[in-house]
Simulated assay, not measured.
Amino acid sequence: MDVGLLLVNIGLIIMLLASLGLTIIGMPGNIVIFLTALAYGFYDHFVHLSLMDLGIVLGAIILGEVFETFTGAVWASREKASKRAVIFAVIGTVIGGLIGTAFTPIIGSIIGALAGGFTVSWFVEYQLTNDKEHAIRVATSVIKGQILGVIIKFTIALVTIIYLLFNLAW
């Protein structure tokens, strides 16, 4: 094997593992996975990673992002949350994640997203129903859904990385 190819493969593996770490902390690791695979495809002239492979990776990554974004809201609706609370749960999750990232990029991202989703969904649901217990059930279900969304997204990222590793030129 060519030393240059070996170094490129090692660099790719390092980037993919770093991307997996980014994914678990709520950063755009899945996007980095795709961009890394795309760069490898250009390097390899799409011999080992074809455009079809990249399409599969892109589809999986989009699916993971959708799950992460909306699973909390879907779980909130299981508790008969209002549409407003469901919409604001998604917004609170994003804003909380950004604020948490500003304070502590790794742990703060996760804590901020969870706290933002919980707080906003609780507040909106309580304002609409005046029922603290119901608002807490809705907010708790948002948290459960968010955690499930991150697990699904991480799993998709891991499977995507394994798929890419099997397609590298060795």
Rank of each mutant, 00 (worst) to 15 (best):
L54A: 00
A39C: 06
H45P: 06
I111Y: 09
G64R: 08
T104N: 10
H45V: 03
Y43F: 12
V32S: 07
L51K: 01
G100V: 05
I87E: 05
I106E: 10
G96N: 09
G108Q: 11
F103C: 05
K83S: 08
V32K: 03
D53M: 01
V66A: 14
H45E: 08
I56W: 02
V47W: 01
L35Y: 14
E68T: 13
A85Y: 02
I87P: 06
F42E: 15
I87V: 13
A76F: 06
Y40H: 02
R78P: 02
I111L: 13
S50K: 00
L35M: 13
T71E: 04
V94W: 08
V94M: 11
G41R: 01
P105Q: 02
P105H: 02
T104F: 14
M52Y: 01
G41I: 00
G41P: 09
F67W: 12
G55I: 00
A39N: 06
A39Y: 13
H45C: 07
E68L: 12
V57T: 05
L51V: 02
E68A: 15
V74S: 09
I91A: 13
G55R: 00
G116L: 09
F67A: 12
G117C: 10
Y40K: 01
G55A: 04
F88N: 04
F118W: 14
F34W: 15
V66H: 11
G96Y: 11
G55H: 00
K80Q: 12
G92Y: 03
Y40A: 01
L58M: 12
T69A: 14
F67H: 10
A85M: 06
I107L: 15
G92P: 11
R84C: 11
A113D: 08
Y43M: 07
G72S: 08
D53T: 00
F34S: 12
A113I: 08
D53W: 00
K83C: 02
I110P: 15
D53N: 03
A81D: 06
G41M: 02
A39T: 06
I95P: 12
K83W: 04
L58D: 01
K83Y: 03
L58K: 07
G97P: 12
G96S: 10
I91F: 14
F67V: 03
V94K: 13
T101K: 13
V66C: 11
H45F: 06
I56G: 03
L51S: 01
A81Q: 04
K83E: 03
G55E: 00
I91K: 11
A113Y: 09
L98S: 04
